[in-house]
Structure formats: structure tokens, C-alpha cells
Amino acid sequence: MAFNRLNEFIRGLIPYLAVPVIVFIISLTLPPSYQRITVHFLIYAVMAMAWVVVLKMGYVSLGSAAFYGAGAYFFTYIIKFYVGMPYLAAIVISIPIIALIAAIVGYVTMRLAGIFFIFATFAASEALRQIFMYSEINYSGFVGKIIPNPLSALQAIAIFSILLAFAGILFYTTTFHRYRVIIDFIREDEELARVFGVETLKYKIAFFTAASVLQGITGSFAAWYLSYIDPDLVFNPMISIQVLVIGLLGGTGNFLGAILAAALIIFLSEQLIRIASHVYLIVLGISILLVSKYMKEGFSGFISKLGSYRR
């Protein structure tokens, strides 16, 4: 029985590990300009897939930039304060700090619902931006940090592909029968879940923290790759909005939804921003309206229908 469960677990895990490997292999054949776009795509694919885990519980977050920016800044502060520390060690040290912040934010915001939760997560992101801006101005004397020895595009692709696999594993965890039932309970009728003895707040904070830590680690590696950060760059509200659009467009039913949505949105952003940034913002706004109206299940719905047709 235990062997059958292990075998089933491994077989279920294969697609979540195979997709990042395929993305990495394909990226090896791309010219440098497209490798840079691939890095951008992977960053948002990881963040969106983590965001979808929170969406599965019925919570729409606008706080992705908070943890992305916090991860970038804690990593940068550690390597600046401890000169000579290996960058990977600095990222590992920053993880519990991000987890603590995420747990505190989760404890406060996950007691709210609907539009109140959305505003609370956005407020958390803006509060962190102001805190780091204040710190930069009053203690550094200038705004912005430079990170020496940045990652190459291929190194970044390899790292973010690994993070995409971890995001896939987190998503896969939500499909386990026990957690799937609890998540459905939380989304559909949390009061009823409490009546049945489910400690909903504990599970909400746990999944929110895990997703936020993953976004924070993404921010740390993104800072290493970009080689420069400032509060307006890494706490930019557009990060949260793009993650929200990608997550909604991808849907919650299948992990491939977020990946396909990230590929589409990032490709559009790279092409349209070159022409006119306002055009991209218009397209982004229209995307939100269309998804809300006609694609409530996102790309995941199409993938599910496609799978049912093949059967």
C-alpha cells in the first residue's frame, strides 16, 4: 500500500518537474535577447504559480511585490553587511526573515476577506516600500543598491527553472485529497469548515507563507540577476498587478495555466512596451476585463476541456 502511494506520488510529480526541464533545454537554443525574455517569463511564472495557491483559497492578493521586494532587499543588505559572504548563503539566510514577515502579514490579512484582503495586501506592499525608501535615504544617503558579479542569463534561467519546479510542487501539494478538501472548504464556506473543526486560519497562513517565501526567494535571485535594485523598482505595484493578471488568466485548475499565461503576458509586454508603454497598460486592463467576464477558469479551463476531448 505504501509503495503504491509513493509510486502514485512520483508519477503525479513528473509533469511539475518535466516542464521546467523542457523550458531550460529550449532556452539553451535561444539567442541572448530571447534568453533575457525567458528569464523575465520564468520570474513571473514562479510568482504567478505561487499566487494561484492563495487564489485557490478564494483570496485575491495584491501583495506579490511586497515579498518580491523584501527578498531582493534582504539579500542585498546581507551581502553588503557581510562582505565576502557567498550569495547563495545570503539568500538562505534571508528565507526565515521573509517567512516571518509573510507569517505576520498572513496572520493579519487572512482574517479579512474580499476587497478588504485585497486592500490590506496592497497596503502591506506599499508600507514595505516606504520603509525601505526611508532606510535608503536616512541610512545610506542615496537610493538604490548595486549587486556586483551578477548572474548570466543562462545561470538565471537554470535557477528560476528550479524555482518553477518548487512552485509546481507547492501547487501539487494543494491537489492532495486532504489539502484539496480543506482549501475547497475555506473557499466555499469557511464558517462551515470551522464547525467541522478545521483550523482554517492555520492552513491559510501556512499556504500564504509558503507562497510568499517562494516569491521572496524569486526576488532575491532577481536582484542578483538584475545587479541593481531600488524601492520603486522592486516594490513596483505593476509587479503585483501583472502577477494578478497572469494568475487569473492561467486559472487554478492546472499548473500549466499559469505558465502559458506568463508566456503570453510577458511576450506581449516585451513587444508592446517597445512601441508604447501606454498601449501595454491598455491591453493589460482589457485582459482583466475579458478574463473576469468570459474566462473565469482561465487557460486551465481550456486545458481541462482539451484533456476531456482526448478521452
Rank of each mutant, 00 (worst) to 15 (best):
M1H: 13
P15E: 03
Y16E: 01
P20E: 01
I26V: 15
S27T: 02
S27G: 06
P32M: 00
R36N: 11
H40N: 12
F41W: 06
L42D: 01
Y44F: 15
M49Y: 05
M49S: 11
V54T: 15
S64G: 13
S64R: 05
F67V: 07
F67G: 03
G69A: 04
G69C: 03
G71P: 01
Y73C: 08
F74E: 06
F75A: 03
F75T: 06
F75I: 04
T76Y: 01
F81A: 13
G84V: 09
L88T: 15
V92Q: 00
I95D: 09
I97G: 04
V108N: 11
T109K: 10
M110D: 06
R111N: 11
A113M: 08
F116N: 14
I118K: 11
I118M: 14
T121D: 00
R129K: 13
S135Y: 10
I137A: 12
I137L: 13
K145N: 10
S152W: 02
S152K: 05
I157W: 07
F160S: 02
A165F: 06
F166V: 15
L170T: 06
F171S: 03
F171V: 08
Y172D: 09
R180I: 04
R187E: 05
E188W: 07
L192D: 06
G197W: 05
F208Y: 15
Q215A: 11
T218H: 11
A222C: 11
A223M: 06
L226K: 10
D230H: 05
L233R: 04
N236D: 14
M238L: 12
I241G: 04
V245L: 09
G250M: 00
G253I: 06
N254R: 09
L260I: 12
A261C: 04
I265F: 00
I265S: 00
F267L: 13
L268R: 01
L268C: 07
S269L: 04
E270P: 02
L272A: 10
I273P: 02
R274K: 14
R274G: 15
V279M: 06
Y280E: 02
I288H: 04
S292A: 14
M295H: 07
G298R: 00
F299N: 01
F299Y: 04
F302T: 06
L306P: 08
Y309V: 15
R310P: 04
R311S: 10
